[in-house]
Simulated assay, not measured.
Amino acid sequence: MRKYYGDIYKKARIDAGLTQDQAEGMLGVPIRTLSAYENGKLLPHGELVCKMIEVYGAKWLWYMHLKENDPVGKRFLPDVRLGRLSSNVLRLQKEMADVTKINPTVVEVACDDEISEHEKNEWGSVHKEISELMGACAALLVAN
């Protein structure tokens, strides 16, 4: 049996101050099924995750659902550090400043529409900084 990352659904419910019994009624899901989601034995479908987000007030849940349980999300979504709004804003500001610093490199490498062999290391640094910026943007978007 495939194991899923179920702690995120449990955390969202607990953060909302709900018991499994309460969530069962609000989500229209049997408690046994809800427990299987929270224990990583079953993966909730997208529509149910949307309902969990609404019921639990957990805007971050969509991102973590995709990042932890979807193969495309695991591979391509940047890591996010979910934190307080103020720390998310400060991180975004820092990452924007870092990208501004590498802008000359971005322009230099991209101006000929090719990444040559000697530019690959530089482009790797660009890729890292942009990924960190995307993670900071995503963290701010999903902050409660």
Rank of each mutant, 00 (worst) to 15 (best):
L92G: 04
L90P: 00
G57Y: 07
G28Y: 06
A16R: 00
V49K: 10
D21L: 12
K94A: 06
G46V: 15
L90M: 11
P71E: 14
E24S: 15
W62V: 09
K67W: 10
I31R: 15
H45M: 11
Y63C: 06
P71S: 11
P78Q: 12
E24C: 14
G28L: 05
P44W: 07
A23N: 03
V72R: 12
A23G: 02
M64T: 08
K59R: 14
V72P: 03
L85Y: 13
H65G: 00
P44G: 05
L27Q: 02
V72W: 15
L34M: 10
D98R: 13
R81P: 00
H65V: 03
E95F: 05
V55F: 09
L18A: 03
L85A: 10
E24P: 00
M52K: 00
N88A: 12
V80M: 06
Y56Q: 01
H45F: 12
P78M: 10
R91I: 01
P78K: 13
P78W: 09
G57P: 01
A23E: 02
K67R: 15
C50Q: 12
L42Y: 14
Q22N: 08
G83R: 06
D79Q: 14
H45V: 14
R32N: 12
A16L: 02
I53V: 15
G83W: 00
Y63R: 10
K67D: 01
G73N: 05
G28N: 03
A16I: 00
L42R: 14
W62H: 13
K74F: 01
L61V: 07
L66N: 10
N69Q: 11
A97P: 07
G28H: 04
L77D: 01
L77E: 06
E24R: 13
K59N: 13
N39P: 00
N69K: 14
R32M: 07
L82Q: 08
E24K: 14
L34T: 05
I31W: 04
G25Q: 06
L18I: 03
L42K: 15
I31A: 13
E38K: 06
A97V: 02
Q22E: 15
V49C: 05
E95R: 15
G46R: 14
R81V: 09
P71Q: 12
A23H: 07
E95Y: 02
G17S: 01
R81Q: 11
L48T: 15
K67M: 02
D70C: 13
R32T: 14
L18F: 08
S87C: 09
V29G: 03
R32D: 13
P44H: 08
Q22P: 02
S35P: 03
M26A: 07
Q93N: 13
I53Y: 02
W60T: 00
R81F: 00
V29A: 04
Q22Y: 01
F76A: 08
S35C: 11
A58H: 05
L43N: 10
A16S: 09
A97C: 08
G40T: 08
P30E: 07
D79A: 11
L27Y: 02
L92F: 04
L27E: 02
P71D: 13
G25K: 10
E47W: 00
